[in-house]
């Protein structure tokens, strides 16, 4: 029985954001934007979706009169990511064995 891939994570930009955040303690919006090559608007929308799912924590503050958005993966996000990777492995193992 195949595990269903988490629809929140099974989207290019959201998966990229979570994969990036899994390797660091926290990252700023500008850093994520640079690494994912996403537009600010699209990234904002996807970050909001991840936040609503409880996968990431978003902190907004002003530094030198400029807004600063910092993102951090939550425990729930880590668990979801691990499950997603496990499900992926299952799919990949099957496709390899069918070759």
């Amino acid at each position: 029985m195949f595990k269903e891939l988490d629809p929140i994570l099974h989207a290019q930009l959201r998966l990229a954001v979570v994969s990036l955040l899994i390797g660091v303690k926290e990252a700023e919006f500008t850093f994520i934007k640079e690494k994912t090559n996403a537009t600010a608007g699209n990234l904002s929308v996807q970050i909001q979706k991840l936040k609503e799912a409880g996968y990431i924590e978003v902190t907004k503050q002003f530094v030198n009169n400029y807004p600063q958005t910092t993102c951090k993966i939550t425990q729930q996000g880590i668990v979801a990511f691990e499950k997603y990777v496990a499900a992926l492995q299952q799919y990949l193992n099957v496709s390899e064995s069918q070759k």
């Binding site: 891939l5 989207a11 959201r14 998966l15 990036l20 690494k35 997603y84 992926l88 496709s95």
Partner: peptide, 19 residues
């Protein structure tokens, strides 16, 4: 990075390792 393009398991794995 586009969010509307369909991706398969290999694409997912590629994104994860790249990021």
């Amino acid at each position: 990075m586009d969010n509307t393009v369909d991706m398969n398991e290999r694409d997912s794995l590629k994104i994860i390792s790249e990021m």
